[in-house]
Amino acid sequence: MGKNRQYAILADEDLMSLMEGGDAEAFAALYDRHSRAAYSLCYRMMGDRQAAEDLTQDAFLKVWRSAGGYRSERGSVRTWILSIAHNRGIDQLRSMASRRRTQDRVEQSAPRSQPSEAFAETWRNRQREQIREALDTLPPEQLKILELAYFSGYTHVEISSLLDLPLGTVKGRMRLALKKIRSYFDQENVAVPR
């Protein structure tokens, strides 16, 4: 079996171990597996193609250089990679001299599943669908706050000011929204994907 084919069947955790030893091909296999999800997240956060590419590159280089920092007990490799992209994205959004996160993004609608993607063949896509379904159960005012925090990098204090809501209301909606997402998976008898 060729080396590339061997990598294709290795679990993410095994690829991480190889990568920690400096194996670039193991990294390439992980990139091929998770770059679509990471790029999609980066695109959602940054709002344009070039910035999304830069952020994705930055995040994957961080993944490469920090392979030893991954701890399987804290979540899956995919979650770890996406959290790196998310954290770098928040840093970049907050450090922008002139924030592009304008009021119109406040009005931006919730992410919806695209009909063509519904019930896609792979397990990963099924998970995506479940997550989108879970988000669909949220009241719009809770979803908006999650989006402003998670995708646009606003702090709870900034959201309070932006939406002209008491800070306690913002915190309360965050809490309720996370609780409701968890309840969705509990009701469906499905474990929260890691």
Binding site: Y43, H86, Q114, L135
Partner: peptide, 11 residues
């Protein structure tokens, strides 16, 4: 989980 919610784009 929110990280998986955005519409997908190919890099």
């Amino acid at each position: 989980l929110l990280a998986l919610a955005p519409p997908e784009h190919d890099p």
